[in-house]
Design a protein around this nucleic acid. Structure first.
Lengths: 203, 203
DNA sequence: TTGTTTTACTAAACAGTGTTCAGCAAATTT
DNA sequence: AAATTTGCTGAACACTGTTTAGTAAAACAA
């Protein structure tokens, strides 16, 4: 009997349909507007149905944020193809990170700012997708350290510092904390800051 | 007739009562739990009364976040008394900023992460309290640049970079994005990162 | 002191949120 | 054909922020 297989397929299909709809709505209209009812409306099911496929809203948006990490990780990997110099790798990944944030601000917000996805994790389990992304950064930094091309020797301190710097830039921008810099364009200033940071890092 | 003066006083007193209660609840129980009804309950007035003193919840929490800035700015000013070396000033203010965030996480969240306070500002007006805090950072950085004790010459790029770095550290921690660093204590790693950044900056 | 106006406040409602659960119709199994 | 399981939903619950009509008390005017 292929019935149970078909049912399994149907179930996964429905899960995906909810997931993609949730993603779509919140990319278009933001996290606030992506209510269970709005999602249910668009897929033409009742709100209660969503709870047959996801424990709660946090779990649903945890899954959405995983989709975001698939994209970001993909772009972080792609960013360094053909690059051999470790510092150039770091620059490429830095700008790829920033580009992702600029082009997918709502998704970035969900992945790195919102509480929702983190609240769906039990305290024991790890933030696998986030950790995977972090390891890509570590990888590049390790090459920089090994080749003695940056002025930091401790991997974790370097990784934490660089990630924090990039996240700070991007999240202050997303959450509207950058305002007047007396006529200087904020986006240009941000790129200049990244460039400056690389100069500081380089040996 | 001192009646209008007394009424004015009463009005300000009531505003302050609402403000302090809002602050208290959200410091104790977080932004989510600080609902208009919860605030109204605690001051023993109806929820509608709050709307006679504040346009909406965003405006109320804009005022709360201003209280936060008063404290932070005070501590940023205090942090450098008796210090003459510009880089030591920078270190002191960096750690003061971090300490404020650790000791007042909900308030920091409201000031630099939440959308609410920013949404209450009309697009024309500036984020005065945030800007004032930013100027304190600029002040110290300017002294560093003038004395040629850091490796950055552009004030705005330096200020944006340093603020972003500090905010990144603190906000990733507050929003629970720092997890496993293979046994290394996160708080220690954060302090190490600040120290490392100062080393990179120093000429 | 009386009558009138202004002020300060609130009950109740509106429109929205996440979430749960009893019940129903259709699919599946016996 | 009967019994069971599955997939789904209407309606409710307990919350949000916010608005408005109405009321009692305070202030003012005669």
């Amino acid at each position: 009997m292929g019935i149970i297989q078909r049912k399994e397929r149907d179930r996964l299909e429905m899960r995906l349909k909810i997931l993609e709809t949730a993603k779509q709505i919140f990319i278009e209209e933001g996290f606030e507007k992506a209510s269970i009812r709005a999602i249910a409306d668009r897929i033409e099911y009742s709100p209660a149905t969503i709870y047959l496929y996801f424990k709660d809203k946090n779990e649903l948006f945890f899954s959405v944020h995983e989709i975001g990490f698939e994209k970001l990780n993909f772009e972080m990997i792609n960013a360094i193809v053909g690059i051999t110099d470790p510092v150039e790798e770091l620059r490429a990944r830095g700008f790829a990170y920033m580009k992702f944030a600029f082009q997918n601000p709502e998704m970035y917000d969900l992945m790195f700012i919102q509480n929702a996805p983190m609240e769906s994790m039990k305290n024991s389990e790890t933030w696998a997708c986030g950790h995977r992304c972090f390891l890509l950064l570590c990888e590049t930094i390790e090459r920089c350290i090994e080749s003695k091309s940056i002025r930091i020797s401790n991997l974790y301190i370097a990784a934490m510092s660089i990630w924090s710097f990039m996240h700070g830039l991007v999240s202050l921008k997303i959450r509207n904390r950058f305002q007047k810099f007396e006529g200087v364009d904020v986006d240009e200033l941000m790129k200049g800051s990244v460039e400056q940071m690389i100069q500081l890092l380089k040996v």
